[in-house]
């Protein structure tokens, strides 16, 4: 059954690589694999360290940016003098109108 009907074609392949070429290729790939294996533990170690350092850096920058972004631009005033008490009684519109008042119009305390 094996190959039945294809005897006239045979088992040749339409490729032209010679045995000598393949010997060279096999030697190259074999030595390449051996080099890769012997180099890989150290190489992998450094790749891991570099990846971890890069990840930490990115996380650090990300956290910093997030913290910076979440900080409110408004400053909480923690004073409670008479001027502040007066300002607290004003509406936003009244505060907006303050620059148009004459100095005499502002009550004294």
């Amino acid at each position: 059954m094996n190959g039945q009907g294809f005897q006239d074609i045979g088992k040749r392949l339409p490729y032209s690589e010679s045995d000598e070429y393949l010997d060279g290729l096999i030697e190259r790939t074999t030595e390449g694999a051996l080099r890769q294996r012997s180099a890989s533990p150290v190489k992998r170690h450094w790749v891991l360290i570099a990846s971890a350092a890069a990840a930490l850096l990115v996380i650090g920058i990300g956290v910093k940016l997030l913290n910076h972004g979440s900080q409110s631009p408004t400053v909480t005033m923690q004073s409670s003098g008479p001027i502040d008490e007066f300002l607290n009684t004003l509406t936003d519109e009244e505060v907006a109108m303050l620059p148009y008042y004459e100095i005499e119009e502002i009550p004294e305390y």
Partner: peptide, 9 residues
């Protein structure tokens, strides 16, 4: 072939 060699090793 190269990948196979590495994988075998």
């Amino acid at each position: 072939m190269q990948e196979t060699c590495v994988r075998i090793l």
